[in-house]
């Protein structure tokens, strides 16, 4: 994950606290979604950024997660996501994010 984004996440987790903060990601592939989710939940696996060794434990979801979909009004969803929901594999992305943020973290 971008080093600047890592710093922003660290700063926001300190000012808002874990329960108030949700991270929503838009990665196109399960593999990159998993790496991003793992970084947010358990720290930077590449040990390059501010989240190296930092277990933020934040709630992280993919934007195509069905739970997120239910909360977004249809007109906004159609305009902003639209056919991307068909182009990307929402179920696989949702699962990859859940696994990487909750499992034992052995993602690529």
């Amino acid at each position: 994950m971008d080093l600047d984004s890592q710093e922003q996440l660290l700063r926001l987790s300190e000012t808002h606290g874990r329960d108030d903060l949700v991270v929503v990601i838009g990665a196109p592939d399960p593999e990159s979604a998993a790496v991003t989710a793992e970084t947010i939940a358990k720290g930077d696996p590449s040990y390059a950024g501010a989240l190296a060794g930092v277990q933020l434990g934040l709630e992280v979801r993919h934007v195509l997660d069905e739970e997120i979909r239910q909360e977004v009004p249809d007109d906004i969803w159609d305009a902003q996501i639209g056919v991307m929901a068909d182009v990307l594999d929402g179920a696989a992305l949702t699962e990859a994010v859940a696994k990487a943020s909750q499992g034992d973290g052995a993602s690529g």
């Binding site: 808002h16 108030d20 990601i25 838009g26 196109p28 947010i40």
Partner: peptide, 14 residues
């Protein structure tokens, strides 16, 4: 909630 949107150019953008 306070939400952080981390998009990707090839998926869904920020």
């Amino acid at each position: 909630k306070q939400v952080v949107a981390l998009g990707e150019r090839d998926g869904v953008s920020g």
